[in-house]
């Protein structure tokens, strides 16, 4: 067993330190050491997107990144979306548009959609479907997920207008 290392990064705005073996995956550190069980494990092969988090302004599947790669990084997970008791527009959109059923893919979906709207604040349906293609859902058939993202896009753009 390789020597354990301390890794420090910012998790939803808070500085955290975690002691890990070099081989430890970020998803396991988040879920088991840092009590952030919002991101889920669906495949461990980076296909399903249930473990999606945002690292330094990019969507990352945390089942295929090592925790030691996250030194000094800014990590955002689903737990960081609600601010001051106020839901993020995406969280609101997913509820209002019935964009979730079992809820397992939802944290990854919302986190991925967050990055989409940062890069493209008013995406077309086709662009939403393309951007969300790395996140699988078995329940909704995506139609209401598209609507949820559009809901959030509208809300965010009217707020900034």
């Amino acid at each position: 067993m390789a020597k354990k290392q301390t890794v420090s990064f910012t998790l939803n705005g808070t500085q955290v330190d975690v002691v890990v073996e070099p081989r430890e995956l970020l998803i396991h550190s988040l879920r088991e050491k840092l009590q952030h069980t919002g991101p889920h494990i669906g495949c461990e092969t980076s296909h399903c997107g249930a473990c999606t988090v945002d690292i330094d302004g990019m969507s990352v599947k945390s089942c295929t990144v090592l925790t030691v790669q996250c030194q000094d990084a800014e990590v955002l997970t689903i737990e960081g979306f609600e601010q001051g008791g106020e839901l993020h527009a995406l969280q609101e959109g997913f509820t209002q548009e019935h964009g979730l059923q079992c809820g397992y893919c939802t944290p990854g979906m919302i986190t991925r959609a967050y990055r989409l709207l940062k890069e493209n604040p008013s995406p077309s349906e086709e662009e939403i479907r393309y951007w969300m293609a790395g996140n699988l859902c078995r329940c909704t058939g995506y139609q209401n997920i598209v609507k949820a993202v559009q809901y959030a896009a509208n809300k965010l753009s009217s707020a900034s207008a």
Binding site: G38, Q91, I110
Partner: peptide, 9 residues
């Protein structure tokens, strides 16, 4: 939904 959209399932 309240728990799922917050990652609290």
């Amino acid at each position: 939904d309240a728990r799922f959209i917050r990652g609290k399932g």
